[in-house]
């Protein structure tokens, strides 16, 4: 084998790109443990160390509370999305009629409507019946996510042989029970994709929660982060510690589920 200098250069280039790409994270973490004066004097060097920023940011973010709000809203929404969209997709995939395909296209078609085109009437309707809280946020998240999830499940159910339906019926279980016990486990990988895609989106969402939730104590993490950032008043050391705290849960989840998360990202786009 001859030595390939181009190959070495390409690898070097790839590594440099990697360093550039991860640098924003590194610099944020680095400055989050520096003092205010340390950042002011030199934001690219390491000249001071303190953990006080984290202590203060944790309290000002009301971290446990905000985290909990984000968690129940995400889990509640994803639970409803998974149940409702898989049921609907299954009925749509197993029925042949003109009405059925119209319903499918109606479901898929609502995906085309951008959120910004419905947010004003949506908030105004729910405001008029005085129903703007975490429960209505969960229902809205669910409604907004159903169309994509139905389309994803629909594709997966088409790949499940109909003979399994018969086995489920022969078993004598009620239809709903049979569906969740026998049919749904056949599309485990798509269930994972639907859960992951929606969880990431809802966890990170800011616009909808900002319109629905207007009471302190109900704020989700991104919402609280937004207000907190305003309060810090260019005290970067606090803002950065808060940012790192807000990023950590996502990174932990990514480390645990890296393969599934990347797979879901592809499936969500390609299907």
């Amino acid at each position: 084998m001859k030595i390939r200098p181009t190959k070495f250069l390409i690898t070097l280039f790839a590594l440099i790109a990697g360093v550039v790409w991860i640098y924003p994270f590194v610099i944020i973490v680095l400055n989050s443990v520096k003092t205010k004066n340390g950042i002011f004097a030199n934001p690219i060097g390491f000249n001071s160390f303190t953990t006080k920023n984290y202590y203060q940011a944790f309290q000002q973010l009301d971290f446990i509370h905000s985290f909990w709000n984000s968690l129940i809203i995400t889990v509640g929404s994803v639970f409803l999305i998974t149940i409702f969209s898989s049921m609907a997709a299954y009925a749509l995939a197993r029925t042949n009629s003109r009405l059925n395909s119209s319903i499918y296209y109606l479901c898929a078609g609502t995906m085309l409507i951008p959120f910004q085109s419905i947010m004003i009437p949506l908030v105004s309707i729910f405001g008029k019946i005085d129903f703007l809280d975490r429960t209505s946020l969960i229902l809205m998240n669910t409604g907004l996510a159903l169309s994509l999830s139905v389309v994803l499940f629909y594709g997966a159910f088409l790949g499940v042989p109909r003979s399994i339906d018969e086995a489920a019926i022969l078993d004598g279980a009620s239809t709903i029970k049979a569906f969740f016990m026998i049919i749904l486990p056949n599309v485990k990988s798509m269930t994972g994709t639907v859960i992951i895609l929606n969880a990431m989106k809802i966890w990170n969402d800011y616009l909808l929660p900002s319109l629905v939730i207007n009471k302190d104590g109900m704020y989700t993490l991104p919402l609280k982060m937004y207000y907190f950032f305003g309060e810090t008043n260019s005290q970067w050391q606090l803002a950065l510690a808060g940012l790192v705290l807000a990023i950590i849960p996502v990174i932990i989840l990514f480390v645990l589920l890296q393969k599934q998360i990347m797979q879901s990202a592809i499936e969500g786009a390609v299907k």
Binding site: A91, L106, C107, G143, T175, I176
Partner: peptide
């Protein structure tokens, strides 16, 4: 499994209702 109409509608009703309330009706009102 969906020979009975009842089951079919039972399975798609939650989705249809939420899509209507959260997207379709606000869109029309919009």
């Amino acid at each position: 499994m969906f020979t009975r109409k009842y089951n079919y509608w039972l399975f798609i009703a939650p989705t249809l209702i939420l899509l209507a309330v959260i997207i379709v009706i606000p869109f029309i009102i919009g």
